[in-house]
C-alpha cells in the first residue's frame, strides 16, 4: 500500500473546492438548524437551485457570470419563500418530511424531459463556466508545495471557493452575535416563549431559511463550477445527509464547526476509503470488490451520523451545553 499517496490524496481533500462547497451548505444548515432549530432536510435543493439558477442564467439568459451568481442567489430566496411560507408553521418532524419531499420534487422537475430544453433533463447542463475560467488572474503554471500543487485553474477554483467560505462564516458570525441572532437562538429554544415576548417568530424563521438557503446556493455554485456540469443526480437525498453529517461532526451551533467538521469529514472519509481500497487490492479484505469500496463510503457516513447523534450531539467542537435537540 502506498501510504504517501494515500496521505497526499487525503490532505488534498482538505482544501478541495468540493470540500468548500459542502462546508458552505453546512454553514447554511447551521443557520437553519444550529441557530434557529429548523429541521431542514432539503438542503440539497437549495444548493441545486443555486447551481441551476446560475447555469440557466448563463446558458439560457446569456447573463455574465457575476449577474448569473446573483440570479442564482435570488432563485434561492424565491425557493425559500415558496418552501417556507406554507411549511414553517409545521412541527419539526413534519418539517423534516416536507423539506425532504420538496427537495425531491425539485430534483424530479430538473430531471423531467418536459423541461429538458432549459434544464438539460437527465444529462444536465455544462459549458457554463467558460467566463469563470477566463476571469482567472493566475498565469499558466503550477503553484504550491508538497501535496498542495495545483494548476492555475485549480488554484483559482480553490481561492474562489475558500474565500466564499470565509466570507460566509464571517457574515454568519456577525449576524448571530447581534440581537437578531439572539432572537433566532431564542426560537431554537422555545418559539412560543419568543412569541410571547412580541417577536414575529414566523418572519424570523423565514429570514433564517432564506439566509441559510442563499449560503447553500453559493455552495451549490462552487460545486458545479468545479465539476463543470450540473446534473440532477448530484442533488439526491445523500447530498443532504452528508451535509448533516458534516454539520453534526463539527458542532451545529458554532461558526467554526461546519468548517472544521467538513475538512475532517473528507479527510477521514478519504483515508478510510483509501485504506480499505488498499486492503482490498492486496487481498487482506477479500469480501469486497473494488467498486464496492466506493459504496462503503456511504455505509461509513450512515454509521457516523448515528454515532454522532447518539454519543456526541453537540459535535466535536460544540459545547455540550450549547447544543441540544428539542423534542
Amino acid at each position: 500500500m502506498d501510504w504517501l499517496a494515500i496521505f497526499n490524496l487525503a490532505l488534498g481533500e482538505l482544501i478541495s473546492p468540493l470540500t468548500a462547497a459542502y462546508i458552505l451548505c453546512a454553514i447554511g444548515l447551521a443557520v437553519h438548524f444550529g441557530f434557529t432549530g429548523l429541521m431542514n432536510f432539503g438542503q440539497a435543493a437549495f444548493a441545486a437551485v443555486g447551481a441551476y439558477g446560475m447555469a440557466i442564467g448563463i446558458l439560457t439568459f446569456g447573463m455574465p457570470t457575476a449577474v448569473a451568481i446573483l440570479f442564482g442567489m435570488a432563485c434561492a430566496v424565491i425557493f425559500a419563500l415558496v418552501l417556507g411560507i406554507p411549511t414553517l408553521r409545521l412541527r419539526a418532524d413534519y418539517l423534516a418530511i416536507v423539506t425532504i419531499a420538496a427537495a425531491e420534487i425539485f430534483r424530479y422537475l430538473m430531471l423531467t424531459s418536459g423541461f429538458a430544453g432549459v434544464t438539460g433533463g437527465s444529462a444536465g447542463l455544462s459549458a457554463f463556466n467558460e467566463e469563470f475560467r477566463a476571469l482567472n488572474p493566475f498565469p499558466d503554471g503550477e503553484y504550491g508545495f508538497g501535496p498542495f500543487v495545483f494548476r492555475e485553474e485549480e488554484l483559482w477554483m480553490r481561492i474562489v471557493g475558500w474565500l466564499t467560505v470565509v466570507l460566509a462564516a464571517l457574515f454568519v458570525m456577525f449576524v448571530m452575535r447581534s440581537p437578531w441572532g439572539r432572537v433566532l437562538r431564542g426560537i431554537r429554544e422555545d418559539e412560543d416563549a419568543v412569541r410571547s415576548l412580541g417577536k414575529n417568530v414566523f418572519a424570523y424563521k423565514l429570514q433564517a431559511l432564506i439566509i441559510g438557503g442563499v449560503i447553500a446556493a453559493l455552495g451549490g455554485m462552487i460545486f458545479v463550477l468545479n465539476l463543470s456540469n450540473v446534473q440532477p443526480a448530484s442533488w439526491g437525498t445523500n447530498f443532504t445527509f452528508m451535509i448533516w453529517t458534516v454539520l453534526l461532526l463539527g458542532g451545529a451551533a458554532t461558526i467554526l464547526g461546519p468548517i472544521v467538521g467538513g475538512m475532517l469529514f473528507f479527510l477521514l472519509l478519504t483515508l478510510t476509503q483509501s485504506i480499505i481500497g488498499g486492503l482490498v487490492d492486496v487481498g487482506v479484505i477479500n469480501f469486497l470488490s473494488p467498486p464496492q469500496v466506493g459504496q462503503v463510503r456511504f455505509l461509513i457516513i450512515g454509521l457516523a451520523l448515528m454515532a454522532l447523534v447518539i454519543f456526541r450531539p453537540q459535535g466535536i467542537f460544540g459545547n455540550k451545553k450549547e447544543m441540544q435537540f428539542n423534542g
Binding site: 418532524d93 423534516a96 453529517t245 456511504f298 450512515g302 457516523a304 448515528m306 447523534v309
Partner: peptide, 23 residues
C-alpha cells in the same frame, strides 16, 4: 434520546442498511 435525535439516527441507520443491501 430526544425524538428528533432518534429521527436522525433512523436516517443514518437507513443509509447504513441501504449500502449494506447494495454491497
Amino acid at each position: 434520546l430526544g425524538l428528533n435525535q432518534m429521527m436522525i439516527v433512523s436516517i443514518g441507520f437507513g443509509i447504513f442498511l441501504r449500502y449494506v443491501l447494495l454491497i
